[in-house]
């Protein structure tokens, strides 16, 4: 069955994806996503009711190590990439109102 995605859903996905699409882009994305989902629906032909979801092919568990700093202070070099910086910190727009 053909998938239909509402404008509300597209708006919601845009919020999750942190993307601001133009109206034209939004319509194109909607069309692309609908045809992708139609194709992905092929998976419903498979009975997977008795199959566990496999996120990794190997049984990878949490891998722990001691929390020891090994790479020293890379502060200056790291901040050199910042679009805006001040006093060894990244500058961002105000996030909390007074």
């Amino acid at each position: 069955m053909a998938n239909v995605i509402s404008d509300e859903t597209m708006g919601y996905v845009g919020i999750l994806a942190k993307l601001e699409l133009s109206e034209e882009e939004k319509q194109a994305a909607k069309k692309d996503m609908e045809s992708m989902l139609d194709y992905i629906d092929k998976l419903n032909e498979l009975d997977t009711s008795k199959v566990e979801p496999m996120s990794h092919v190997f049984p990878v568990k949490n891998v722990f190590r001691e929390d020891v700093v090994e790479n020293g202070d890379g502060g200056e070099a790291t901040l050199a990439n910042a679009p805006e910086k001040r006093d060894r910190a990244f500058v961002v727009p105000k996030t909390v109102d007074q």
């Binding site: 859903t9 919601y12 996905v13 845009g14 999750l16 994806a17 993307l19 699409l21 882009e25 994305a29 692309d32 996503m33 992708m36």
Partner: peptide, 17 residues
């Protein structure tokens, strides 16, 4: 981001929502 990257981020955000 270019169009293909946006397309996949949108699809990924959707299937995880």
């Amino acid at each position: 981001f270019g169009p293909e990257v946006k397309r996949r981020i949108m699809l990924g955000s959707f299937v995880l929502s």
